[in-house]
Simulated scan of single mutants.
Amino acid sequence: MPARSPDSIGCRNTSFRLAAHPASEQIAASIGTVGDALDNALMESTIGLYKTELIKPQRPWKALGDVELATAEWVDWYNHRRLHSEIGHVPPAEYEAVYYQQQPNPQVTATI
């Protein structure tokens, strides 16, 4: 039997613990199948933008607090002022507000 590298054993154990914890808390984990990269595509894209637009241009960072504050400011800018071509060149917050304004009002019903 070939020897396993410590890295591959650690990854397997970490993956097992990662999957077991949400299950023990009765949480449905959002984990795709092996080789299915589509689940993370949106997050990977956003993280790439975050690194390109904020982290890399301003390095070296002096302190963690500086990164945290800049991240909060970037997230606010990204959601409220950055124009997104895929949604008609408007910020996501504006697009979402318009979307919900166009939805019919939900009817409240009571069952006795």
Rank of each mutant, 00 (worst) to 15 (best):
S30E: 13
P6M: 03
K51C: 07
S24G: 05
M43I: 12
Q103T: 09
V90D: 03
A70Y: 04
L54A: 02
A63W: 14
S5G: 04
S15Q: 14
G10P: 04
G48F: 09
P60T: 11
P106D: 06
G32P: 08
F16M: 08
N13Q: 13
K51Y: 12
P22C: 08
L49R: 09
E25D: 08
I27A: 09
V75L: 10
S15D: 15
L49H: 13
A41P: 09
R12Q: 09
H21Q: 14
R82Y: 03
T14K: 01
I31E: 05
L83S: 02
P2M: 02
T109Y: 11
Y78V: 03
L54Q: 00
V108A: 11
K51W: 11
A70R: 02
P104A: 00
Y99L: 14
T71Y: 12
Y100S: 06
T33E: 13
L38P: 04
D7V: 10
V34K: 11
S30G: 09
A28M: 05
Q58H: 15
Y100N: 04
F16A: 11
P104T: 00
L38H: 15
I55H: 06
E44Y: 03
A19R: 15
N13S: 10
Q103G: 05
W61D: 02
A70T: 03
I55Q: 01
I47H: 11
A41K: 10
R59V: 11
H21Y: 15
S45N: 15
R12P: 00
Q58T: 08
N40P: 02
W77F: 12
D66C: 03
T109R: 10
G48M: 05
G65L: 05
S5L: 00
D66G: 01
Y100T: 03
T52R: 12
S5C: 06
T71N: 11
N13Y: 13
H21S: 13
Q58N: 15
V98M: 01
I55P: 01
A72M: 10
G32W: 08
E96M: 07
A72W: 11
N105M: 13
P91T: 00
A20L: 09
Q102Y: 01
E53C: 01
I47K: 06
G88R: 08
W77C: 05
S45K: 14
V75S: 06
E86W: 10
G65E: 04
S15V: 13
A72N: 09
G10E: 04
N13K: 13
I27R: 13
A37S: 14
E53K: 01
E68D: 07
D36K: 12
T46Y: 14
W61I: 03
L64A: 02
F16L: 07
C11A: 04
A41I: 12
S30N: 14
Q107C: 08
I9L: 05
K56R: 15
S45L: 13
N40E: 07
Y78N: 01
T14A: 06
T14M: 05
P2V: 00
G32M: 07
G48A: 00
S15N: 15
W74M: 07
D39T: 15
T71V: 12
A19I: 13
E94D: 00
V67R: 05
Q58G: 07
P91R: 02
W74S: 05
R4G: 10
P104L: 01
A63E: 14
P6I: 04
A29H: 12
R17F: 12
S24V: 02
P106M: 08
T33P: 09
E68C: 08
D76T: 12
W74F: 07
Q101A: 08
E96V: 12
D66V: 05
E96K: 10
G88M: 05
